[in-house]
């Protein structure tokens, strides 16, 4: 049977990808962030999964406003890298896992999640930046297939944090029900606090971020019970992306072990963070 072996939470700020693409990671602005990634990257390199399920949101690239799914899971065999306005990032095409993806859709729909099935999808920075955070030098190919799971966080009404956490739990059940022995990593992406527009543009809330960073491991239910207004007021209009970390968290066991984390301000207009968890109780 398949199992969830680890979970990665990470910001997906475009400039993090651009810093890597333009080899600026050792410049003073970026070095602290990338130094903070080192320990997690080393551990992940030793624990390459068979498949990744990557929870993210599109940013006006592949999903327009004419048809906005609350949750969409992509079942195609491959996903081209999107041109977001400045040409596609110079990273490899992403290969999917159609069989597992189909299984996940079937389980989730049977489990009363109203999933939209995406068969054609170009993946934007929300997707490729987390892959680069995980694996900085892919060469010609990413280390394993990746299944995109999209969440609407840009048009109100977003799914509630509670619904995202429940989706994660159902995702975990669905992964564990897959008959093949696959090690699956789940990525929850976005955040932490940031707001791009309005008079509060540039908002950073390190207190909320630290609370979230702690409770994502120890008390995700508390995070799941926060309202959209709380996320937006405390973490900014785009900080609500953090609800996607709850999908990852829900797919993991109740007790998980923190391998590494880091928090850095700023990555352009954003508080950037990473948290890596192994799916086992601490000390076991």
């Amino acid at each position: 049977m398949a199992e969830v072996t680890w979970g990665l939470a990470t910001s997906h700020v475009p400039s993090i990808g651009a810093a890597m693409d333009n080899r600026r990671t050792q410049e003073p602005y970026w070095k602290p962030l990338f130094d903070g990634y080192r320990q997690a990257r080393d551990w992940m390199a030793d624990h390459t999964p068979d498949v990744i399920v990557l929870v993210y949101n599109d940013h006006a690239n592949a999903i327009g406003l004419d048809l906005v799914p609350t949750f969409a899971l992509a079942t195609a065999a491959s996903f081209p890298v999107a041109d977001e306005g400045w040409g596609p990032r110079p990273v490899p095409t992403v290969y999917g896992h159609p069989e597992l993806a189909q299984h996940l859709v079937e389980c989730l729909v049977d489990d009363a999640f109203d999933i939209t099935v995406a068969h054609r999808l170009a993946v934007d920075h929300g997707f490729t930046v987390p892959l680069s955070v995980y694996h900085p030098d892919p060469g010609d190919a990413w280390p394993c297939p990746v299944i995109p799971l999209l969440v609407n966080v840009i048009q109100y009404p977003q799914p509630t944090a509670a619904r995202c956490y429940d989706l994660g739990k159902a995702l975990g059940r669905a992964i564990r029900a897959y008959p093949e022995d696959l090690k699956v990593a789940v990525f929850g992406t976005g955040g932490m606090s940031h707001q791009l527009a309005g008079e509060r543009a540039g908002l950073i809330n390190p207190v909320f971020d630290a609370m979230f960073m702690s409770k994502i491991q120890s008390d995700p239910q508390a995070l799941a019970s926060l309202s959209r207004e709380t996320y937006i007021r405390e973490a900014g209009s785009e900080g609500i992306e953090m609800i996607m970390w709850l999908v990852m968290r829900g797919a993991m066991d109740e007790d998980i072990t923190r391998i590494s984390d880091t928090y850095h301000v700023p990555a352009s207009n954003t508080a950037a963070a990473l948290a890596l968890f192994e799916n086992r109780a601490p000390g076991r």
Binding site: L65, V68, I154, Q155, Y156, P157, T160, Q195, A197, G198, E199, R200, S227, R228, E229, I232, R233, G236, S237
Partner: peptide, 22 residues
């Protein structure tokens, strides 16, 4: 949670915005 968040200094893009800004 049934009402749209109202946070001063903050845009919360919604379905009506999508319609007007199409």
């Amino acid at each position: 949670m049934t009402t749209k968040p109202d946070v001063p200094g903050t845009y919360v893009f919604d379905i009506a915005d999508s319609r007007h800004g199409h």
